[in-house]
Amino acid sequence: MRQSLIEFIRNLKVFLRTKFKQYNSKLPYFITVLLALIIVVFCINTFIELTDTLKSEILATYDTQITDYILTYRNPSLTKYFVFVTNVGDLYGYLIVVGLASAVSYYFFKSWKYVAQTVLVLLVASISNVMLKRFIDRARPGIEHLVSVETLSYPSGHAMSAMAFYGFLIYLVTQFNLSKLAKSSIIAGLSFLILSIGISRIYLGVHYPSDIAGGFIAGFIWVVFCILIFNIIELFRRDPKT
């Protein structure tokens, strides 16, 4: 992504230079940020419009079929696993992961930048999830809940936060100087964790499958947007003309 962003800003500079003899060197970055905001607003608007399908009978049928299939696997051992996984995707789970990430950043990178960025991504996803829940106002499934819940259903906060938080960790892993085996192992583990957190919410009876899909999509939109903004800021700081 960074290389594509560098190329885009470079081309934008060339375009502005040919159209205007003099222009503010910060302008290409402001234009890029503005375009990123327009894209994310468009994506969110499209996401909200797609929620109209939540009332369709076809989606309700798929939700019921997928939920019934997953519930057939309920057993004490699997319940313990999914309760643990769902806790990993909750507040205390994130606090532990952030604590570990802080220790790694301090001892290996001597920088808090990555921790701050990761926490910011999580906060953005969590706040936007609360807003989306209130706007869409979908009730929880009317089946047995194996864990207590108090908020609304769509989109799943666990799925959205997991995709944003652990998805951003996946991005960071791709940027570090690690062996291919280490990168592949960590990425596979985090990807499995994201998927497990999503499935756990269906298994525990507190979300429809469409809640999880919506949460994953919304979380992906935010993590891509945050990565884009972080890269723009980094390139802006390194630009000798700014």
Rank of each mutant, 00 (worst) to 15 (best):
S156T: 06
Y166I: 15
G167M: 02
Y166T: 13
T151A: 14
M160K: 02
S148Q: 10
L172T: 01
V147T: 14
V149K: 06
G157M: 13
N177R: 11
S153K: 01
F135H: 06
L172G: 05
A164Y: 13
N177H: 13
L152C: 09
Q117N: 12
S128H: 02
L169P: 03
S148M: 12
Y171T: 03
V124H: 10
L172M: 13
Y114I: 11
L172C: 05
Y154F: 15
Y171G: 10
I143A: 11
S126V: 06
S179I: 09
L132G: 00
I170P: 01
V147Y: 08
D137T: 05
F135Q: 08
Q117W: 13
K133L: 07
G157N: 07
M163D: 02
A125D: 04
V121W: 00
L123G: 05
G157K: 08
I143V: 15
D137E: 10
Y154V: 01
I136G: 00
V147M: 09
A162F: 14
L152S: 03
E144T: 15
I170G: 05
Q175E: 15
Y171L: 04
R140F: 14
E144N: 14
A116Q: 08
G167C: 06
V130W: 04
T151K: 12
L178N: 05
S179P: 10
L122W: 04
K180I: 13
V115M: 08
L172F: 09
R134S: 15
M160C: 04
P141A: 12
T118V: 12
Y171M: 03
R138A: 01
V130M: 11
G167P: 14
M163V: 13
Y171W: 13
V130T: 12
M163H: 05
V115D: 02
I143W: 02
T174A: 10
F135G: 00
S128G: 00
R138L: 13
F165R: 07
